[in-house]
Design a binder for these strands. Structure first.
Lengths: 268, 268
DNA sequence: CGAGATTTGTACGTATGTATA
DNA sequence: TTATACATACGTACAAATCTC
C-alpha cells in the first residue's frame, strides 16, 4: 500500500484530513501550490488528486476562489462507500445500514431478473446460464460472491436495455466492494445454490416473470437470514438487520428497483 | 459550444468516431502521440480526453499495449445516456427505453419516500417541505422538472442513510439530463401539483408508509399518462412506425417516445 | 467602483519508469 | 533482447475567474 504512487498518497492524505474533520465542510483548502509544497510534490499531482476527490463529491474547485470542502455526506458519490464503512461513525448504525444495503441488493437482483425475463432472447439467457454453470466448484467465499454479482449483471446485459446496464454497472462496483467485505463472514455458496439458480433460470427462460421473481424473493429471504445469523454469530448481538421483506407487495403492477451511477478517475 | 477547450473537442471527436463505428469495440486506437499529431494538440490533452472516455467505460488503456475500444454498450457508465440517446439506433426502440426509464424514476421516487417515511425526523421532513413550498410559482417546465427531482433527492437526504444518498446522487445526474430533454415536451407542473405533493408530505410526516407509497404511485400513474399523451402529440407519427398507439398499458410492455441530447462536463 | 493580487483552468513539454509485443 | 507505447510525475506559461483592498 505504501507504493501506490504519489497521486494516491496525496489523495489519501487529503481525504483522511477531510473525513477526519481537519477540513470540515465549507472550509477552503490551501492553494494548490501551497499543498504541493506542503506535501512535497508538484502542483500537477495535487491537481490530479483534487480532481479525483471532486469526482467523489468531496471537494469542488473554482477559478480564482479555490477548492472548498463539500458536505460529502449529502453530496458524495457511491464510491465513498468503502471509505465511509471504515469510519467509526458508520459502525454506529451498522444494523440499519446493512439492512438497507441488503434491500438495495434485493431490488437490483429483482430488476435484473425482471429485465431478462421480459426482454432477453433465448440465446442470451442460455449464454448467461452457461456462464453460471461453467464456473462452479469455486468455494472461496469472495469468489462466489463476485460470481453471483456478475451473474445478475449479465442478466441485465442480456436484456439489451443498455441504459439499465449502465446504471447496473455503476451500482455494481461499490456493491462488489461491499460483497468483498461481507463474503468472508457469509461463507461460501449454500449447498442448494446450484439448484436454486437453475430453477430461477428455468423460470426466466419460460418467461414466467411472476414465478421467477417469487423464487428469487424466497431465495434472498433465505440467504439474507443466513447472513444475519452468521453476522450475529461473528459480532455478537451487534447487527440485527432491519430488512423487512416488504418488497413484493404491490397488489398490481410494478415491483422492484434499480439505481444509480458513479465515476472514477484512473486508467488501466 | 465552439470554445469549450481542446480536451472537450478531442474527447468529442474520439467519442463520435467510436459510437459512429469508425473504431469498433476491440480495435486498438492509434498511439497517443499519433492522435496528438493528427488532432493538433499535445499528448497531455489526448491523455486527458482518453482518461475521460475511460471513466465513461468506452476505452481502456494499458501500458505497452495501447488504448483499446471497449464494448461500451455492455461496459459503459450512466453518463453515456445522453450520448446514446442521440444515436439513431437508440431511437429505434425509444418506446421501450422510455418505459424503462420512467420505471426507474418511479422506483427511485418510491424508495425516496420510503426512506424518508421510515428514518427522517420531523425537522428534516419539515425542512424538505419548506423547500418545496418556498419555490413554487415557477412555471418553466425544465425548472419544474429539476425542482421535482431535487425534492425526491432531498427526501433521501432527510433519511440520513448516506450510502442511499450517494447512490441517489449518482443516479440523479443522468436523470436530470433526461428530464431536461423531456420537460419541454411534458410542460410545466399540473394544476394540482402543489396539492398532491402536500398530501404526500402529510403521509410521510404521519409515518404512514403504505398511504404515502400508494399516493405516490397514483400520482406517477397520472403524470406518466399525461407525459405519454403529450409525447404522442409532439411526435405524432413522425418517429418509428413500429410504435404502437398504446404507449402505456400497465400489466406488461411499456412504451412512449424520447429524443436526443448532448452534454458537457467540467470540474467546479 | 476599480486595480492588482491570488488562485484555478488549460495546454504543452520533458524526463523516467514499466509493461507489452 | 529490443523497440514501442503508455503511466507517472514535475514543470512552465498564460488565460480567466475571483477576491481583496
Amino acid at each position: 500500500m505504501t507504493h501506490a504512487g504519489e497521486v494516491v498518497r496525496v489523495r489519501r492524505t487529503l481525504l483522511e484530513r477531510i473525513v477526519g474533520g481537519d477540513f470540515p465542510p465549507g472550509v477552503r483548502l490551501p492553494a494548490e501550490t501551497d499543498l504541493a509544497g506542503e506535501l512535497g510534490c508538484g502542483r500537477s499531482t495535487v491537481r490530479e488528486a483534487l480532481g479525483q476527490l471532486a469526482t467523489l463529491g468531496v471537494v469542488a474547485s473554482r477559478r480564482g476562489s479555490g477548492a472548498h470542502v463539500l458536505d460529502w455526506r449529502r453530496e458524495g458519490s457511491p464510491a465513498l462507500l468503502p471509505y465511509y464503512l471504515s469510519l467509526p461513525s458508520a459502525l454506529a448504525d451498522a444494523p440499519r445500514l446493512l439492512g438497507e444495503l441488503l434491500r438495495m441488493r434485493r431490488l437490483l437482483a429483482s430488476e435484473a431478473v425482471r429485465l431478462a425475463t421480459r426482454y432477453a432472447d433465448d440465446a442470451a439467457i442460455a449464454s448467461v446460464r452457461r456462464a453460471l454453470e461453467g464456473s462452479d466448484g469455486a468455494v472461496d467465499p469472495v469468489a462466489h460472491a463476485m460470481r453471483e454479482l456478475e451473474i445478475f449483471r449479465q442478466l441485465v446485459v442480456s436484456s439489451g436495455i443498455w441504459p439499465a446496464v449502465w446504471f447496473a454497472n455503476a451500482f455494481w462496483a461499490p456493491m462488489r466492494e461491499l460483497h468483498g467485505l461481507l463474503a468472508p463472514l457469509a461463507g461460501g455458496p449454500p449447498g442448494d445454490y446450484e439448484t436454486a439458480m437453475s430453477r430461477l433460470f428455468d423460470h426466466v427462460a419460460a418467461r414466467d416473470e411472476a414465478r421467477a421473481l417469487a423464487h428469487l424473493d424466497r431465495w434472498l429471504d433465505k440467504v439474507d437470514r443466513e447472513l444475519e445469523t452468521r453476522l450475529v454469530h461473528a459480532f455478537g448481538s451487534a447487527t440485527p438487520p432491519a430488512t423487512p421483506s416488504k418488497l413484493r407487495i404491490k397488489p398490481r403492477r410494478k415491483s422492484a428497483a434499480p439505481k444509480a451511477a458513479s465515476s472514477k478517475r484512473s486508467r488501466s
